[in-house]
Every structure is written in structure tokens, then in C-alpha cells.
Amino acid sequence: MSAARTVAVGGASPYRIEIGPDLLHDGERLAAHARGRHVLLVSDSNVAPLYAAAVAGALRQARPALSVATHVMPAGEAHKTLASFGQVIDALAALGASRDATVYALGGGVVGDLAGFAAACWMRGIDCVQLPTTLLSMVDSSVGGKTAVDIPQGKNLVGAFHPPRAVIADTGALRTLPPRELRAGLAEVVKYGALGDPLFFEWLERERAPLLAGDDRALAEAIARSCGHKAAIVERDPLERGERALLNLGHTFGHAIEAEQGYAGADRDALNHGEAVAVGMVLAARLSAMLGMAPESDTERLRSLLRAYGLPVDVPPGLAPAELLGRMRLDKKNLAGRLRLVLWRGIGKAEVVPDVDEARVLEVLAG
């Protein structure tokens, strides 16, 4: 087997995150997590041509008795829908998937969220192994068991908590990642430093060049440290009833931007998830400074770091602040119809703030 770094996620449903090169070709490692004989490999039209045949072949070689089927969905957030979810359910039915079947989610966050949700629902829950192929999904969506699809009213409003049986992150897959997608993943990496680790934030300031160049050592370190932070928080708060909400720093603003733009893929100019989160983090920092919670200098330091990674830091033109606020009111963290946002006291000191004044949010959204 290939050498891999391991991050353990504890709690009621423990699992391991394995990080290293060439793991998608390691049939023994992949097949070790299939309890039964039925496997559905879910991927998308971008990733499947690169890796699906190799993964399916590696599984069959390691376990010849496996019945492996592949379902390929169209790529892009615009296809993370109930209709696409239904097609994965149909594929499981066609396979005759039993209660000990396993779904392997091969792709980015869209595939991971949708395939994980289908696994959560088929026969009230079967195993899912996450095989993230983007940096964003390696450090965020594949870890923690949050699965969902989007509806026109908002992002991730229909879903379930369903921890994976394992996460296998092949860093070699990042070599085929478009530069824009690598930068989007780095936004989520920055998030971990911003919300709870100022030393990691400083490391990201120093390591910008190797990370943007796709250096294996730097990326593996960034992934392991990010996953370590998320694993620790998820273990303490698996159902997002407290501390885990901190992982949504920038996301309430970012999801509103994504929903208002119709999600990247439907419009080439729309921000993707990582880009929207980058803007959202800056908006959260600006609001924190406006409310007297944090120094403006930390907002500027965050803006500078995100811009150094080639990420946007301002609300895209043409989006009405009132419409964005309307989207934010649908956020799952809100209580009793009042905005509940993740803000900060400065770099590394995020907190959940209830009952945020909507007038101040509108000021920030208006720039």
C-alpha cells in the first residue's frame, strides 16, 4: 500500500482521513471499506474520465467478487439538485444495492454532498466512502458527514448528517485541478487559520508560493492541518449544535451570493463556492469591525492574504444587498427568524453571534 498521512475523526461514528499520493490506485486500501458486494461509484463528467475507470478497476482487482457500477452526473453546483439525487437512487436500485452496499463518492464537493445524501437515504442509510479530488472537498466537504442538495431557495437546505466510513484524499488528483479550483480550495484552508489558529494563518502567509505552485509537501501539510482542525471540532459537536457552527465562517454571506447568482456552472462569471466563501469571510470580518468586535487591521490582513491567493474579496457587481439579506434569512443557523452569524474577535478568534442587526448587515453588503 502507498504511504499516507492519517487524521482520525472520533465520536459515535469514528473514521479515518487518509492523505497521500496515488491512493486512488490502491485497490486494497479502497476495497477495505466495502462491507458487502455492491458498490456504486458516483462521479461527474469532469472527474470520471480521469479516474473512474482506474478506481473501479482497482476495486475489482482487489475484490473480484464486488459488483461495481458507475453513475456519472453532470459537473457543477447547478446539478446538485433533487433531480440528480433521484438519479443516484435509481442507480442504486438498478444495482440491487443491499443494506451492506457502499457508495464511493469520487469528485469534488458537489459529488460528495449528493452521493453522501443518497447513501444516507438508501434503505435508511448505507456506507459512503469519500474520494475527494479537489482541494476544497479534501479539507472541507468530505469531512464531517454533512450531506445535502440545493433547491432554488438556497444552498444545502435538504440533507442529512451521515458520517463517511472513510475519507481517502489522493493528493495526486490535485495535479489535474484547474488553477481556479485550487485557489477556491485554499479559501477554505485560510478559513481554518482565520477561525481558530493564528499560527496556521501565519504559515499560510509564508507558504503562499509553494501552495499556489501545487507543491506536494506544502499541500499535504495544509490538508492535514485543515482536516485536523475540522476533525477535532466535528468530534466535539457532530450535529452542529454549538462549536461546529464556527466552521461556517464566511459561509452565510457566501451561500447567499452563490444562490443569488444561480450557482457557478449556470453562469461562467458566477463565483464558485470557495470564491464566495472568500468574499463572505471578508464581509464577516468587516461586520465584526463595524460592531466593535475586532480590529480593522485584521480585516485588512485577511483581505491581503486572500488577494495574494488570487481570490475575490468584494461582493460581485449587480447583486442587490436586500436580495442577499433575504437569502441569508434562510440560513440554517438562524433562530426564531433572527440572523445568527459567525463573526470574529480577530484572526483565530471566531464566535457565533446571535440576533445580528440586519441594518448593519445591509451596510456591509452595500460596501
Results as ranks from 00 to 15, higher is better:
Leu195Ala: 06
Lys191His: 08
Leu199Met: 07
Asp197Met: 11
Arg183Lys: 08
Ala160Thr: 13
Arg175Tyr: 03
Arg183Leu: 01
Val158Glu: 06
His162Gly: 10
Ala194Thr: 03
Leu174Gly: 11
Glu181Gln: 15
Glu207Leu: 07
Val167Thr: 07
Gly193Glu: 02
Leu204Lys: 04
Leu204Gly: 06
Gly159Phe: 13
Glu207Tyr: 04
Val190Asn: 01
Val167Met: 07
Arg165Gly: 14
Glu207Phe: 06
Leu177Pro: 01
Phe200Asp: 03
Leu157Phe: 15
Glu207Asn: 07
Glu188His: 01
Val190Tyr: 06
Ala187Met: 00
Gly193Ile: 03
Gly193Leu: 00
Phe200Ile: 13
Val167Asn: 07
Leu174Asn: 02
Thr171Met: 01
Ala169Trp: 05
Asp197Asn: 12
Val190Glu: 00
Phe200Asn: 04
Phe201Cys: 07
Leu157His: 14
Tyr192Arg: 03
Glu205Pro: 05
Glu188Trp: 00
Glu188Met: 00
Thr176Ala: 11
Glu205Val: 05
Ala169Asp: 04
Pro163Gly: 00
Gly159Ile: 13
Leu199Thr: 12
Lys155Val: 11
Asn156Trp: 14
Glu205Ala: 11
Ala160Lys: 15
Glu207Pro: 01
Leu199Glu: 15
Glu207Gln: 07
Pro163Thr: 06
Ala187Phe: 00
Leu174Cys: 08
Tyr192Cys: 14
Phe200Gln: 01
Ala169Tyr: 05
Tyr192Trp: 14
Asp170Leu: 04
Lys155Ser: 12
Asp197His: 02
Pro179Ile: 06
Leu182Cys: 09
Asp197Arg: 03
Leu182His: 05
Leu195Ser: 08
Ala160Tyr: 12
Gly193Pro: 06
